[in-house]
Amino acid sequence: MKRIEVKLALPVVAPLLDVIKGMADGLRSNLAAPLGPMDLDADFSAAWAGELLEAQNADVAALLAMFNDEFFAEGVIAFDEDNAEQIVRATAAVRLRLREHYLKPLGDETLESGNVELERLDEPLRKAFMCYLFLATIQELIIQHLDSSMLDS
């Protein structure tokens, strides 16, 4: 099984975990992406959203599980074919939640381009944006190295 280990700078990443956990808490009862018009009746719509939420929670749990004892001891996180898909989806969910809760003042164009002067941001916004970039990096790493495994699964 293909497995990728990444060594992270603990002093940089550990403080971001509080932000990730905060977003994960919010995702327990809220979908990351809004449900567009689907022309569904109320009961069906509730069941639909409930199943999405259940799947989202399982994905976010997989993301949080990545920051285990090994991470806190050595700064190492690992992905493999078993958890890659869930982590990729969870990073998307947390990033969407970060935009909703912290990053809207930056504007969508800035978010898409990523051109942000970090030193000009106040502490909570800067931390949220660093978290946003960190999760994008994780996502890109997984897509780059485990794309074929995810497509085959």
């Binding site: 990729v88 998307a92 990033r95 969407l96 935009r99 996502q139 890109e140 897509i143 995810m150």
Partner: peptide, 18 residues
């Protein structure tokens, strides 16, 4: 599928392929 400013292009491509 509608645009959002968050999801990475590589991610969207992966999802469509998958």
């Amino acid at each position: 599928v509608l645009n959002d400013p968050v999801n990475l292009m590589s991610y969207v491509v992966l999802v469509f392929k998958k």
